[in-house]
Write a protein that binds this DNA or RNA. Sequence first.
DNA 1: TCCAAAAGCCCCACCATAATG
DNA 2: TCATTATGGTGGGGCTTTTGG
Lengths: 385, 385
Amino acid sequence: MNETDASSRADAPRGASVAPGGPAAEASAVLGGAEPSAAEPVGPEASGPPGVPTMFDVARAAGVSHMTVSRVLNDRGGVSGATRERVRRVIADLNYTPSPAARAMANRRSGQIGLIQAGRPDYGPSNAALGFNEAAREAGYTVSQVSMRGVDAGALTQAVHRLVLQRVEAIVVISGERDGVEVTRGIDAGVPIVAVASEDEPGMHRVSMDQYAGAVRATEHLIGLGHREIRHVTGPDDSMDAAERRRGWADTLRAHGLEVREPLTGDWLAASGYAAGRDLLADVSATAVFVGNDQMSIGLLAACREAGVDVPGALSVIGFDDIPEAAFFAPPLTTLRQDFDGLGRDIMATVLDVLRDEAAAPDRTERVPELVVRASTAPPGRLPT
Amino acid sequence: MNETDASSRADAPRGASVAPGGPAAEASAVLGGAEPSAAEPVGPEASGPPGVPTMFDVARAAGVSHMTVSRVLNDRGGVSGATRERVRRVIADLNYTPSPAARAMANRRSGQIGLIQAGRPDYGPSNAALGFNEAAREAGYTVSQVSMRGVDAGALTQAVHRLVLQRVEAIVVISGERDGVEVTRGIDAGVPIVAVASEDEPGMHRVSMDQYAGAVRATEHLIGLGHREIRHVTGPDDSMDAAERRRGWADTLRAHGLEVREPLTGDWLAASGYAAGRDLLADVSATAVFVGNDQMSIGLLAACREAGVDVPGALSVIGFDDIPEAAFFAPPLTTLRQDFDGLGRDIMATVLDVLRDEAAAPDRTERVPELVVRASTAPPGRLPT
DNA sequence: TCCAAAAGCCCCACCATAATG
DNA sequence: TCATTATGGTGGGGCTTTTGG
């Protein structure tokens, strides 16, 4: 019965449709009244899809096939000017917009870029994400974002998969932590992955600012002021930025024949800077500190204040990032400004490059943080307490 | 000839697919070996799609029909525990996740929620967005985000339209500024819009924290310490949060029979707090200030320091938000902690409510900011300088 | 409890056809 | 006869629903 059924059903609409326009349209619309003879009492106003109009509705209204509509939609050739115009008008009248889901299925591309943001929404990442989002929009892409506070490998993997299945065309990872990048690199996503990563990550596209150069500038600023004992408060172990800044600091000290002491470690938050500050102050010889970021700096400054250590009189402090509050620290913080918005735009630019030609990695030049001198650094003076 | 052709072509495929098992699966997978008689040497390991696995791959591997897989996926009854387990395992093994695009088509729902984030990515909005994002994911939704630094009406309108075209099921607006909310309210998006808004916005769903109550607590804290001249630094004019906090402050002063002086105005940034501080210090009578947020507080504290005004000795300062750095200000800031992550989750909860029944607005109870007393407030002592 | 089969959902790639030159 | 141009037709794509065992 199947066959009979199928063929009969298949034929009827066909026959019917020969005269008018589309095929399937009739299938779903005409249906019952299929038999051409059936006087078409199909009361319910035939189609009557109360929902959004489909391509077939447009086709019918314009008296063309759905294919022609498709061609018009995608600005493909092979449609006469007149027809194109007519279809366009109908599209406007019906307020028709193609279903992204259907498009995604058929095209295997979604016009979406996935953004994975893992970690605390600090000043840097948030602004980079914003810059990226704006750039993506300008490039005609939509951003599907997955944010997570932690950088759990499982969650990250899940996120990548979700995005891949959404048919995103590329995945961007903004996560300071190395794990966040490593994990995603291990996944054969089938789509290019672009990560913000200041260390080289073979087999993956990356974008970053020149953390190393920034650290060099910071350290040289201190050395230039006459400091010889320069400590460092680094970020978490698995932060690539932290590693690069530390490397820049250490290399610079060495280049100047200065001693490289073990850095103190923080987690980027003010509280850890405070803790590091307390430890640091036990070291009476240091006259300057290069702190991994501004947030930790404020904590460290608090520790100094508490211990009665004058900054910059007894200790010079330099931060990194130049968050908007840095100028109002006590004292105003000398730091390195990073252009996060620019970084975000660089990310999207790289995505476009990669999408254009996966192989040709155009290797964008890195932005270099800019030294902003304020009141927390000065030539070494009296020794700490 | 159309007819002949059409019918013959139409029949062939139909007839062919009738025989084997699954429909589409076989079509793309088995293909040649379709004929049941074909001894199934289907060499190429059947499916072989190098891409992501489909439901049919799972079904085959688990030895069940794709329907069962579907039931398991959607937690629908009619599947024995054992089978369910087996299918689950296979799903995990294959790292299978259903294609959102296909689901969207079949379900007529995209599973996407649009998020519009307008304005600077400050601590509050960023964390609320993060909380929302996580909650959305947990609820099985995907987030399509549109971020923009400004709150330009045109851009906002554009954003809403973009999201509607994407067929998002709801739109969330996180934008402190009233304009951001007003604009989106005027749009007949066809999908529910939920906005973070602390003022009542007729004709739109809103979520917020109780800014008013927070401000009352802040003011009462100061009054409780014995202050009688309490000034206020408010946020930008078009911030609803700012308006509510100001209202809470003013009402509380009045309730205690205290004078309500014109507040100073800032833009939430530290620099504006600094400027407000300088103005404020001209007023020698004030013994306390309720500052609209923590960022402005740090600026104001800097102004005090510069002017040699002791905090809290000569002036008590209380902020709002409790950003992680607040405890390390000079002095550590008394402030009102807001649970932004919770707010984000409330947003998603509201979205779900609304999606469930647009009419029944369950009016979630607002979270109330919590007073965190630190060192920037104290009983009034010696007068300012 | 579970399988089988088929009909969509909406669109696009690809092929077929018709009418022109 | 062979390109060319303008259309129409078919077959998925992956999943849910429905109907029928």
